[in-house]
Every structure is written in C-alpha cells, then in structure tokens.
Nucleic acid binder design. Sequence first.
RNA 1: CGGGGUGUAGCGCAGCCUGGUAGCGCACUUGAUUUGGGAUCAAGGAGUCGGAGGUUCAAAUCCUCUCACCCCGACCA
Length: 517
Amino acid sequence: MANAQKQNEQQESITARAANYGQWYLDVIRRADLADHSSVRGCMVIKPHGYAIWEKLQRELDDRFKATGHVNAYFPLFIPLSFLSKEEQHAAGFAKECAVVTHHRLVSKDGKVVVDPESQLEEPLIVRPTSETIIWAQYKNWIQSYRDLPILINQWANVVRWEMRTRLFLRTAEFLWQEGHTAHATEEEAREEVVRMLDVYADVAENVMAVPVIKGAKTPGERFAGAVDTLCIEGMMQDGKALQMGTSHYLGQNFAKAQDVQFLNSKGELEYVHATSWGVSTRLIGALIMTHSDDVGMILPPRLAPIHVVVVPIYKTEEEQKKTIAEAHTLAAELKSAGIVVKVDDREGIMPGAKFYEWEGKGVPLRIEIGPKDIEKNSLCLVRRFVIEKEGESEQDLRKRRKSFIPRAEGVTTVKSLLETMQSELLERARIMSRARTKVIDTLEDFEKFFTQENGGFAWVHWAGNSDGEDQMAKRFETSIRCLPFPDQIIPEARGEGKCILTGKPSKQRVVMAKAY
RNA sequence: CGGGGUGUAGCGCAGCCUGGUAGCGCACUUGAUUUGGGAUCAAGGAGUCGGAGGUUCAAAUCCUCUCACCCCGACCA
C-alpha cells in the first residue's frame, strides 16, 4: 500500500515535470547516473556510466573513420591570438565565446593565491573553440605537392566555448568531441569527403544510436563560420524540438588562403588546397536521452549499452538464495562467452523491485529474473526495457507485454536475437514518434497553429526567402530552418514545387522548419 | 548581458513573513523480520543554515554587500 502510493506520487511528479522538458531531462540524467553539474561554470562532470556510453559511441565512430581511410592525431589546446586574426570570418564566428589565457603564473598574496601581474603573456592564447586554425597552420608545413594530398586526419579532443547558457550534454562550456580536418587537391574530392562523413554520422545516428535523422544543408545564415557549405544531420527530440547532431563542412579554399597553403599540381601549377571539417560531440548523449527516455529513466540502444543484460536472482529462503545466485552466475558465464555484457545483481537486502527500477533507470535493455519457479520449470523470465507502445494501451498491459518466458536452453540465442530486435525496434519507435510530429504545411496560419495549438515538431514548408525572412520567422514563431533536405530525404508527401510560405514566391523544394535546441 | 528563482545533513526540501540557538523525507550505520515491481519496525550517525558585514541580550530568520548555481530570454560553429 505504502509502496503503491509512493510509486504513484513519484510517477505523477515526473509526468508533471514532463511539461517542463528541462526538468524531465535532468531527472533522467540523475536516474541514469550519467553526469553532474560541476562547480565550474557551465561545465559538466561525466560520470562513469555516461562516459561508458560515450566510449562505445567513440568506438563506433572511430571504426568508421578508419574504414574510410582516416587516421587520428592530436593538436594543441592553445591557439595564439595572431593565428586567429588571419581568418577574420571564422574568428568572428567564435569571438564572443572564447576563453583567453593571458598569464602564466600565480603568486601568494595576503594568504590568497592571485594571478601574478608580472607574468602576463606577450601574446594571449585562446583555448580552442575548434581547431581549424591551429591545424591548418601545421598542414602548411606538410603540404608541398599533390602527392602529399589528401590529408585525412581526425582528432579526439576537448574544446571550450564560453556559451551564455549551458545545458548538460546539449551545450556545455567544455565538451568532448571529434573533429576531422582534411585537405584535398580538388573541390570535387573535398565535397565527396564532406558527404561521405555526413553519411557516416547518419549511419551512426540511425543504426547505432537508433535516432532517425534528416540529412541536409544549412542555409547561409546557419553555416559554420568560414564554411562555403555546411551539411548537417537533424534529429527530432520527444518534445518536438530539433537537435543538430552533427555537421560536415566544405571549407573551400578559405583556410588554405588564410594560411597560404598551396601545392604543386601534376602540371606544375600552384593551387590552394581544398578543406573540409566535420564533428560530433558529447551532445550526442543528450540526443540519446531526449529521443528514447521515458518516465522511468533512460532507454539505451543495445549497441551503446555498457551492460546488455542484468540478472536478478529472486529468493525467499537461504537455500533458494544460494541456488538462484549460482544459477545467475552460470547463465551470466554462458552469455558472456557469447559476447554479451552481463551484470549479476546479487546485492543482499535490496528488494527485487528496487533493483528493477534502478537498472531500468540506467537503461539496461534486458533483465533476466531468476527465481525458484524458473529453476524448477527450467525456464527463464526475460523482461525487455521497452516495447513499441500501442495506442490506448494501459501501463499494466505494457508491462505484461515486456515480459516473456522461454526454455532455459534457449537463453543465449534468445537474448542475442532479442538484443538485435530491440536495436531495430528502438529506431522504429523513434521513427513513429517523429512521424507523428511531422507535418507538411502550406500557410502561415497552419504553421502558427502547428507550433502553438498543436504540439509542434518538424514543419515541411516551401521556402524562397532570404536570411531576413528567416529572422522574421524566428521572431514570430521561434522557429528556424533546420536544413534544406537532400532530395532522397524528402518525405513523399512533401515532394514537388510550390510557393514560399512567407513570400509566396515560387519554390523548388520544401525545407524543414522547427524549434531547436 | 536582462528577468526570475534557489543556496539549511550525501540528495530533495520545510522552517524565514511574526528573531529565542535546527527539523522532515530519502540515503547511510546496526539489529530483527522480509525478498516474482520501489519492504517494515526499532535504535543510531551526520548540518559553524553559501560567504562577509550590520541591527539585537539573542539571527537560518531582519538589513546591506557579495559569491555560486538553476530556470526563462538574448546568444548558440
């Protein structure tokens, strides 16, 4: 009775919080034990569980980078101010959010540690907000001939952007990421690289993270500072807002010209190098949380779950305890030898229900309960973290549907195939949610209704406006053009030509508009 | 940078209006009974109330200053 009551209270409070997405989001992070606010402004502590997910994501990305011919390297954290001055446009894009190192020594004064005014640096150092500048200063020395190209390098690093407002994972002052920086002899080759890496990101988003994305190009106003073209993948979070999950830039010859990086082509002529850069960050963990989580906590796609299966022994007597725990470890060993990561939760003095909630909150995809009855019947009780919800289904039915009993002998094969099923079902589940909030819209009235009276989401609208028009839309509806989707990304009902939603001018294709993080 | 809010035990909070020397829930420790969806009872440990100054016989409470964080906005490759 008391339990049921407590549970209800908790459920209610979380559901109430769901109205305020920020609170719900923080709650999931707390339950899943992913990260903490740090005492350092805008910075985040990534806790072991959160970091374990990031490591798996890193691995998936890194494997693909290697498979497409890239290698890893590392460049300095500090950028001399003068380096940035060479690339005005690029530098201006980051000017407002740079951490600057001006001194190199501390001294004790009146019992306090203060910056030694005597130690001022002749030239301030910028803590990298991104590494184009410092990397291209180096590439200059590496490139003389077309034979030195292409350079296909990736860096795993931290960067600092002094953002006005921060949110755990989604926008922190310091964050972890990878940044690819490549140099090519021709525009064609560079542009191919940009598309190739965007495809890698989309592949990881959908097939590893189970987050559906739209691939497209940014409008000039939304482009990376200094880029000729910015491609992106955009995901839809459960509140209908868009999240930019990765970008891939064609930088043209801008950086080569700024740093004077020329090479001799096969005809013996001097040419400027064509550049690309592409990156994804710990923001992806935020995307993962916001796309899949429910009121209980995190839901992890099996491919990113640090633990695939948790085994919970259930017992009354001491004898049963011994038996079920022994059986739990036997099963765990079998699963482990099949490459499945298993955790046996044999902690004493904690009720099974408490364990269930704890591991569900952390997002573990599968649970196996082992009790005396299961041993007797020679069967296993499998409980999935999620199933695709049916309309009008009660909590109770949902819970029932998540549970299944299988013969003990089929344990390993069933778990293996179930994990694969869940991986694809999670993507399908996210697709269903995203589709439900995607709408083709032709008038400003419907557009306004979609974002005020209805829940909002992705609006496919015809667009022939300019950046002034984008500003107007942003002011009026708090929406922005997330991307100009690639032709193969356009949903069937959004194909064809039409008239711009704002100006009424003829438009060749629709763009995706949404509120965004 | 503007608006709002919060700092009290590891976490979440009450107490502040109306000043009298700190409390609740969770967590933790010990013991007993429990264990198929968040256990119960009993006993216990833990806080210089964000910091500094002021008013007062007396400050978590009132006043001044300050710091930090959170939320909303502006900003956001």
